[in-house]
């Protein structure tokens, strides 16, 4: 085989491979939508985070605006301390409320942000007021039964 045909085939191979990588990053992965160039960290505490995991999405009005970057227990208050990395493009008022929500009945848990009305915006490293905890199914059922019994 002559060198030019060989080069042609190898060039074609590299092109197909690059196209496959592109397909994986853009169509399969979410490089275009979720790879934030710049983020700022925001702290928030919860009484109970349920099944929230590191890297869970942070959504506002259903739009992904950031990801959970760290979860730890605050020894003084015995609350869960969650750090979120929010996209620099989205700014939120200081009185925004965070709550842990579940997508669907059994789906993954994420943090929902409900924007407040404050004029001042959050800066990197700020903390939010204590968030609304995850709904724990056992507690919910227990409460329901208790209410029923009380009737």
């Amino acid at each position: 085989m002559s060198r030019t045909t060989l080069d042609l085939w190898v060039g074609l191979f590299v092109l197909i491979g690059a196209a496959a990588l592109l397909f994986l990053s853009l169509r399969v992965g979410n490089l275009s939508s979720a790879n934030f160039a710049e983020t700022y960290p925001i702290r928030v505490q919860f009484d109970n985070i349920g099944g929230l995991k590191v890297r869970a999405p942070v959504k506002s009005a259903g739009v992904v605006v950031g990801r959970v970057s760290d979860i730890r227990l605050d020894i003084e208050s015995y609350r869960a301390q969650v750090i979120m990395d929010l996209d620099k493009r989205f700014e939120f008022p200081r009185d925004t409320v965070a709550s842990i929500l579940t997508s669907g009945l059994l789906g993954e848990q994420y943090i929902g942000l409900d924007a407040g009305a404050d004029d001042e915006m959050l800066k990197g490293g700020d903390g939010l007021p204590i968030g609304q905890s995850a709904v724990v199914l056992e507690k919910l059922i227990g409460q329901f039964m208790f209410n029923k019994a009380a009737e």
């Binding site: 990053s25 169509r27 399969v28 992965g29 979410n30 490089l31 979720a34 790879n35 890297r55 992904v64």
Partner: peptide, 19 residues
């Protein structure tokens, strides 16, 4: 099919690690 896939597959975490 596609939107759930894109929501769950992360570029850095899944695609890049595979590479």
């Amino acid at each position: 099919f596609w939107s759930q896939m894109q929501a769950a597959v992360d570029f850095r975490y899944d695609v890049l690690n595979g590479v």
